[in-house]
Amino acid sequence: MATSADAKPIASPATTDAAIVFDAVHKRFGRLEVLKGISGSVAPGDVVVICGPSGSGKSTLLRCINRLDTIDSGQVYVYGQAVHDPKTNVNQLRAQIIMVFQQFHLFPHLTVLDNITLAPQKVKGVSRGEAEKTAHALLERVGIPDKAGVYPGQLSGGQQQRVAIARGLAMSPRIMLFDEPTSALDPEMINEVLDVIRGLARDGMTMVVVTHEMGFAREVASRVMFMDGGVVVEEAPPADFFARPQQERTRQFLSKILTH
């Protein structure tokens, strides 16, 4: 993803083969401008890690990709489709872009199995039998095959987040967005969730991950993006990003989070 400072001109975002294109995205909450013209792109199969201090706009940028947040100017394209165009069928679009939240947001009144099978049945018209088959396979894949019949409240945080990932995968998404997926977890549960995300990366899933897990970024990301104050300060492959940060602000940030 190019920074706004040295953005390559995007000839026609609708015709590039990028998975996600940001075209001068501006967003404000009242008088506070949280995104100050973000441009760049994510290629299919990329794993882009976004880091930065709180309030830097990273979660907002993520939420603009599936229109959970609206934008004030510019455009976001997902496989050529203009996300913030009022003519775009936002439900169809969201079915292909799954968001995994910091607080999981599983449906507490439904069993794990029903959490996973609800959207495929209601949104994609998959039969119950088919959806349940897929769900069991996905629970196997995220390592909790024996939890289909329980309610989310009976699971640990790490297990809940893995169910949330399975729930997303059940929609066969083309893109997965992770909004600080491990920030609400006990330390010993972080890895079980990161392992699942590593597996998705190996399978070539296009992902944008907002996280402070720098070890994970170093190992899994194809590119790391550092945001501060509503702009992309620096963006580079992880090897360069951690070894040779170009911007003073990036160096400050990294020295604070890597030394403890």
Binding site: N91, Q92, F101, V123, G168, M171
Partner: peptide, 19 residues
């Protein structure tokens, strides 16, 4: 977050409400 999760899975406002 409940309705956001429902919407982000592609459910309409009505589906999110109902289910």
């Amino acid at each position: 977050g409940q309705s956001e999760a429902a919407r982000s899975l592609g459910m309409s406002f009505g589906q999110g409400m109902r289910y």
